[in-house]
Structures are given as structure tokens and as C-alpha cells.
């Protein structure tokens, strides 16, 4: 969808057209959800934040600055909401020091959280991603998964392009090291390390 077409759909959505709003959701929900999933490592968080981001954006379409793309605005809102969520909840799986979370015994509580973590533990890539710092993870995901150019990431994250490249370089290297470590380690040891 071109920018002009997108703006037509946005105007219709702003006028209260449910169909147009649905079009915007269907067009962008996958990218926002996968970004948030890769950032948080938790499907429930990704789902909640994705939903809230869309609701915020769609109920404030009249405030949209047409100089930007809808996706950039959506991701800005999504990122803020996710950061707020991190501040409030300090989620167990969202940490750069993987072993630092859990209860006194070093393991998280039984139940839903544990089941989700087990599901996530199967995803080597996700586990490796969680070893990256927040900034590294974000830059790597935006560049390699979302296919954003470096200049746009720099604008979005309000940091110099050199810093974005630095995070990319370090993030990729760390990701490669983490993935080879995870793949070469026995599964039980990995589960321990992850939990």
C-alpha cells in the first residue's frame, strides 16, 4: 500500500469506518506482534501490547502527523507501551541477564508463566535474542526482521546512525555466540540456564 493509499484508508478510519480500521489492523498487526514478541519473548505480552497500541492509534487518528508513515507511528506507540509494561511488571523473561530472574530457588513459579517459558525455550533464536541488551535486541529486530533502514531506526530510537550500527554489530555477534552456545549445550542444561 502506498503512502497516499494508506492516508485515504486512515481518513476513512478516522471518520469511523470500521472496515478501513480493520484494513489497517490486518496490514500491520503481524509486524507489530512479531516485533513485540521478539522483544519480550512472551506471546501474551506481545498480544496485549499489540492490541493496546492499535486501540490507542485508532482512537487518536485525528492527531496523526501525515508526514510520517502509519507503521512508524504505530511502532512508536507500541514501543512506549512495551517500555511502560517493562517498568511496571519487570517480566521474568524480559531481561538481559537471563539467570537473574525467578524465585529464590532460581526457578520461576509453576503455572502459566512456566509453560510459556518452556514453549519459548524451544525457540533457540528467541532464547539467543534474550541474551542481547534491550537496545541491541531492538536494533537487530528492527533491521533484520522488520527490514527498517538504519536511518529510520536511528530516527525512531533517537540515536545517531553510528550508534545503531554499533548495536547491530555487537548484537549480531552476541546473537551468533549465544545461538552456537545454546545449540551445542545439552537441553536440560539449557533449560536450567534459561530458567
Amino acid at each position: 500500500m502506498t503512502k497516499a493509499e494508506e492516508q485515504v484508508v486512515m481518513r476513512r478510519a478516522a471518520a469511523g469506518d470500521r472496515e478501513a480500521a480493520g484494513m489497517l489492523v490486518r496490514l500491520h498487526q503481524r509486524s507489530l506482534y512479531t516485533y513485540l514478541l521478539r522483544m519480550s519473548g512472551r506471546p501474551d505480552v506481545a498480544e496485549d501490547v499489540t492490541q493496546e497500541s492499535f486501540v490507542r492509534v485508532l482512537t487518536n487518528l485525528d492527531r496523526f502527523d501525515p508526514r510520517f508513515r502509519f507503521s512508524t507511528w504505530l511502532f512508536t506507540i507500541g514501543r512506549r507501551l512495551y517500555l511502560n509494561w517493562c517498568e511496571k511488571r519487570r517480566p521474568a523473561s524480559n531481561t538481559d541477564a537471563v539467570g537473574a530472574t525467578g524465585n529464590e530457588s532460581g526457578r520461576p513459579e509453576e503455572g502459566t508463566a512456566r509453560r510459556e517459558l518452556n514453549v519459548q525455550a524451544k525457540d533457540v533464536l528467541q532464547r539467543a535474542l534474550m541474551t542481547l541488551s534491550f537496545e541491541q535486541r531492538e536494533v537487530v529486530v528492527l533491521f533484520h526482521q522488520q527490514d527498517w533502514p538504519i536511518w529510520l531506526i536511528a530516527e525512531h530510537l533517537q540515536m545517531p546512525e553510528g550508534t545503531v550500527k554499533s548495536h547491530l554489530h555487537r548484537g549480531r555477534r552476541r546473537l551468533r555466540e549465544a545461538m552456537s552456545a545454546i545449540q551445542s549445550a545439552p537441553s536440560e542444561t539449557l533449560q536450567e540456564a534459561w530458567l
Binding site: R18, A21, G22, Q29, Y33, Q51, F54, V55, L58
Partner: peptide, 9 residues
């Protein structure tokens, strides 16, 4: 990716 369209709308 789950389809969140209905719940969002």
C-alpha cells in the same frame, strides 16, 4: 501471529 483484528476493533 494470532488474528487480533476482531478484538482490536
Amino acid at each position: 501471529t494470532p488474528d487480533l483484528c476482531g478484538s482490536i476493533l
